[in-house]
């Protein structure tokens, strides 16, 4: 008999566990292929075609990409507005949320009341709250301009002046950030107190304690919120859409100053039915998000992981 080299085989028991395990996760496997991998591949294919639903897709090679990058001004504005949100709006929001969490973590009385107040805007329907913000920002009758008038300042076109739209959206966005405040607060409450106390005995002041102990201790949570929100802000849609949509279905504000990538994609795909062209837009964003995520993971040296316990 010859000696055959065998792959390490699964025992009977392991094989059974494998079958049962795969059965249990089968919804995930189906979902993964049907709702993720399949559509990703299809979207790449569509991005090389011209496809208006009525006629079958027609191969156009790299034309969609070429046109998007070279000549589509609105697309470029959409990308740069989206980057504005990710690079300026998001850091402002996260720093603000962290400050709020640190403030709430000073063992003040009535914490659960404040917690509720800051959290409620992030669970109520975005459209419902945005409708009141539309009224607050209203140039003629809004309370914000009324306040400016009261203190002797000229009114601002919060949603009509291209200079102000994005800052206004960021201002409003801070109001929706309660979820992150509470995530930070929960992790702050887990920072061991004796660690802070011994630092204090060594003469550390509040700022040193915050930057040397508290923030490093919760850095995994900070990293998590950055990743999740970067991906979320790249998809920024509802707030801007509701704030700027007009009667004829167009949106994006004066001179497209509030046109974001997902809004332009929506218009291209679902109002003009240019599915191939919109898929190319999606793939350009996908590449940008991928680069951003890889960059964030590569530069994650500042994240401090506790020893496994």
């Amino acid at each position: 008999m010859t000696i055959s080299i065998r792959r390490p085989r699964l025992t009977k028991q392991q094989r059974r566990a494998l079958i049962v395990g795969l059965l249990f996760i089968s919804p995930a496997i189906i979902g993964f292929f049907v709702f993720n991998i399949g559509p990703i591949v299809q979207s790449l294919q569509y991005s090389f075609t011209r496809y208006n639903i009525l006629q079958p897709p027609r191969w156009v090679g790299l034309n969609n990409y070429k046109f998007l990058i070279e000549s589509d001004r609105v697309f470029r504005i959409g990308i740069s507005n989206t980057l504005y949100m990710v690079l300026i709006g998001l850091p402002i929001h996260l720093v603000f949320n962290m400050l709020m969490a640190l403030l709430l973590n000073t063992r003040i009385k009535g914490l659960s009341l404040y917690r509720s107040i800051f959290y409620i805007p992030s669970i109520t329907p975005v459209v419902a709250s945005t409708i009141v913000w539309l009224w607050i920002f209203n140039g003629q009758f809004g309370i914000l301009n009324e306040f400016l008038k009261f203190i002797g300042l000229p009114p601002i076109g919060w949603l009509t002046d291209p200079k102000w739209v994005k800052p206004s959206l960021i201002f409003m966005g801070a109001w929706f950030g309660g979820n992150t405040i509470l995530i930070y607060l929960a992790s702050l409450q887990d920072v061991p107190y004796d660690l802070l106390e011994s630092a204090e005995l060594d003469g550390a002041n509040a700022i040193q304690k915050t930057f040397r102990i508290t923030l490093p201790m919760i850095s995994p949570v900070i990293f998590y919120t950055i990743i999740v929100n970067v991906i979320g802000y790249f998809q920024y849609f509802t707030e801007a859409w509701v704030m700027t949509a007009t009667r004829d279905g167009s949106a994006g504000g004066v001179a497209n100053s509030a046109m974001f990538h997902s809004m332009y994609l929506y218009q291209t795909a679902f109002q003009q039915f240019k599915m191939g062209y919109a898929s190319a837009q999606a793939w350009i964003l996908f590449m940008i998000v991928l680069i951003a995520t890889v960059f964030l993971f590569k530069t994650a040296g500042w994240v401090y992981y506790h020893a496994e316990d």
Binding site: L10, A17, L18, F24, I25, N36, Y46, I231, Q281, F286
Partner: peptide, 28 residues
């Protein structure tokens, strides 16, 4: 259930969280 390969498959599955919805919107 302790089946071989479960951790690596879980990680691949988890990575779908990072997929921006725009990519799958049109094919879906």
């Amino acid at each position: 259930i302790r089946w071989p390969g479960r951790n690596i498959i879980f990680l691949i599955y988890l990575s779908t969280i990072m997929l921006p919805s725009q990519v799958t919107l049109i094919p879906l």
